[in-house]
């Protein structure tokens, strides 16, 4: 399902801001900020209106433990999340394996002073999206969002809102993805397909660095009530 994949890629893009930016002070600051968060739990509510997939108030509890452990609990019996999209812990190192960052300059974005970077896939990577831009908040050193465009997937924009959690950690309170597809036209110029969508994640109740036990992240073997071949896999179970 391409539309869904686009969302995933959108989420993915957010995570690549630190790629190949080891020399960039802002990116280093951002990575240092992320590293202070050893683990956390938070409540997440997903609302989405995507072509062929709509979600209203999907409630989850999210557990993260550095470097890459993730655990999701469906608070109302069922939850469904993009497999690769929620790089909520520290996506930086992994992303840097696929992308290089190129600083483009200072801009004003979403009402804040930001630095704009271009995302360049590494030659050997399978990064699916080109011509993507990342915006990093200059003052807070957090990703503000990204834009991307692809003839295949349309225009994608992600915007993050933050709050200062426990007076120390800038963590997202809200993530809004929007996607806008160029309408497809038939030969006589009629719009055959015009699809767009959005998804909003709302975070709350962060508990940071509470030393979550590793056992929490061991998902039981495929349970009977989970359906389908994908069910039961670890969220970040990529090779």
């Amino acid at each position: 399902m391409k539309t869904v994949r686009v969302t995933v890629i959108g989420l993915l893009l957010v995570t690549v801001l630190a790629a190949n930016a080891r020399t960039d002070a802002l990116i280093e600051k951002l990575r240092a900020q992320l590293a202070r968060v050893k683990d956390y739990r938070c409540d997440v509510i997903l609302n989405a209106r995507l072509p062929s997939f709509t979600v209203s108030n999907m409630r989850m509890a999210l557990y993260y433990k550095r470097p890459n452990k993730l655990h999701v609990e469906a608070k109302e019996g069922f939850a469904m999340l993009p497999e690769e999209g929620l790089y909520l812990g520290d996506p930086v190192e992994e992303t840097l394996r696929s992308y290089n960052l190129i600083r483009l300059g200072d801009v004003k974005w979403q009402g804040r002073a930001a630095v704009k970077y271009a995302l360049r896939p590494k030659v050997d990577s399978a990064a699916p999206l080109a011509s993507a831009r990342i915006f990093v908040d200059k003052a807070r050193a957090v990703p503000l969002g990204f834009t991307g465009a692809s003839p295949q997937f349309g225009d994608v924009t992600t915007v993050f809102s933050y709050s200062l959690v426990e007076k120390k950690f800038w963590l997202p309170t809200k993530t809004v993805f929007t996607m806008k597809y160029a309408p497809k036209h038939s030969a006589d110029g009629r719009v055959v397909e015009s699809r767009s969508g959005n998804a909003t994640l709302t975070y709350s109740n962060y508990k940071i660095n509470t030393n979550l036990p590793d056992s929490l992240f061991k998902r039981p073997a495929k349970s009977g009530s989970s359906a389908g071949p994908r069910a039961g896999r670890q969220g970040r179970g990529r090779k």
């Binding site: 869904v4 995933v8 939850a79 469904m80 009530s225 989970s226 359906a227 069910a231």
Partner: peptide, 13 residues
Amino acid sequence: LTRQPNFQIYGSP
């Protein structure tokens, strides 16, 4: 549901 690629399913619908 499982035909939705790249999705993780938690719990049961």
